[in-house]
Design a protein around this nucleic acid. Structure first.
Lengths: 251, 251
DNA sequence: GTGCATTGACTAATCGATCAGTCAGGATAT
DNA sequence: ATATCCTGACTGATCGATTAGTCAATGCAC
């Protein structure tokens, strides 16, 4: 029974060990068929991120516990702290990874559409707005699009840190799309372009948070699991809204 | 007036004491000038609901603690359990009260618009869709529209109980609006009417979760605190989307 | 044997919920 | 009238469970 007071640390802020680890870029973060024969390395870090993504999508940030995530990933809870330090850093890393991936792809679409001074038509632009979020977040093996739910919850959050995450990862691409609206819709004011962008994102959120309400309200007629159909319907609606906000718009 | 217990609907549940209390309809739940002379009763029950509404709107359900709410309401934590039993019942009662109030008003608007077999024009119908949520949830004294944030979070939630709340309080009115879309937009399919309704709600969510992003993206040009302006912009966009989904639509 | 990955055991803090009990005030009995 | 009882409103203290986070010790590859 020696002095136990040596355990009373609590004050130290930094996680020197995990700080350098957190800069490691997760290789794929998607379940790949090659995993089963890829070798002895279990790569628990990636497994934790995938498990956490599922749990966060299901229960939200505050509703998810590190124990739940550890159990989902089949590792000990301490390992989560070893790899990510804190719950918040774990969430941030998932968010940053997915958001960077998605917005890189959205930027590529914009580059392609406006290459050589071309002016794309509106449906193409709207497709670039939504498709990467749907396709990159979609896990072909499993059922749901987990990050979309996280994104939808984050977009509506009032928490300052969550707002910062959105601003950091999504604002620059958002401004590119707003400018694109001004080019594709001649005569629209900057103000209305911003409104239209926010409204369009709102429409997309309906799709991202798959709650099953569409099927319920339609007695099963509407199938929101058919991604291509969904993108087509959304495109139609959003194009209609955008054209209506532009003063000189063709029907 | 003998048996008032006929109001005790909630049959299930184990809080015999609070069950009959929970049927008490909160008189106003909004700060009213008549409160100052209404009597000596401080009506802490109402104060708790108002405080909880603010805390839930700020931090979400899981992010809010009964201690936070008690402190916000300036009462003891035990009083929350005395009046509402559990945290979940407290949330449900707030949600039910506001949702009932809002959808009663939305129904009244629909009754008026379709009275005597009349067919309203689309902007009027869209106004009925959103205005009650904005106006009834809006506390003129204070700053924010707290219930709108709760509603936006609930609409995107994956939690079964939260989904049930939405379905219970919002589905019947939603079906009325979907049928109204079919009447106002001749030729639109039932399927597209459902899609259009969900998309319109998505647009409205942008307004309800006031995150300040619109102002940030527009360098302050867009002011989302001007409710009338916001309703006008939303109306324009949503009408455009709806007309585009109807086969025989006038521009 | 050196360094990274991993774990079980642990801590302090916080959670929702419960408890016994205080207090004011109205009804009842004498 | 006044002593007694009852009830609704309310609180401080505390419960067991759960939380995020810590740490010494172990496994293991090279």
């Amino acid at each position: 029974m020696a002095a136990e007071h040596s355990l009373t640390v609590k004050g130290a802020g930094g996680y020197g060990l995990t700080d350098q680890l957190s800069s490691r870029v997760p290789s794929i973060m998607k379940a790949s068929p090659s995993r089963s024969v890829s070798g002895p390395a279990p790569d628990n870090r990636e497994a934790i991120m995938l498990a956490a993504e599922r749990v966060f999508a299901r229960s939200g940030y505050d509703g998810s516990s590190m124990r739940d995530i550890a159990k989902e990933a089949n590792v000990s809870q301490a390992l989560l702290h070893y790899h990510f330090g804190t719950k918040e850093k774990l969430f941030d890393e998932i968010f940053s990874f997915r958001a960077t991936e998605i917005n890189r792809e959205r930027g590529r679409h914009l580059d392609r559409l406006f290459a050589d001074g071309a002016i794309p038509d509106l449906p193409q632009l709207i497709d670039a707005l939504f498709r990467p979020t749907v396709e990159l977040g979609h896990d072909p093996d499993r059922f749901g699009n987990f990050f979309s739910r996280i994104l939808a919850a984050s977009a509506n959050s009032d928490d300052p840190h969550t707002k910062d995450l959105i601003a950091e990862h999504y604002d620059s691409t958002a401004l590119r799309f707003i400018s694109a609206f001004e080019k594709v819709l001649p005569g629209i004011s900057r103000e209305d372009a911003v409104w239209a962008y926010m409204f369009s994102i709102g429409v997309g959120m309906t799709m991202m948070a798959r709650t099953g309400r569409t099927a319920r309200l339609s007695n099963g007629i509407c199938d929101d699991s058919d991604v291509e159909l969904l993108l087509r319907k959304i495109n139609l609606f959003v194009c209609g809204g955008l054209l209506k906000m532009a003063p000189a718009a063709k029907s």
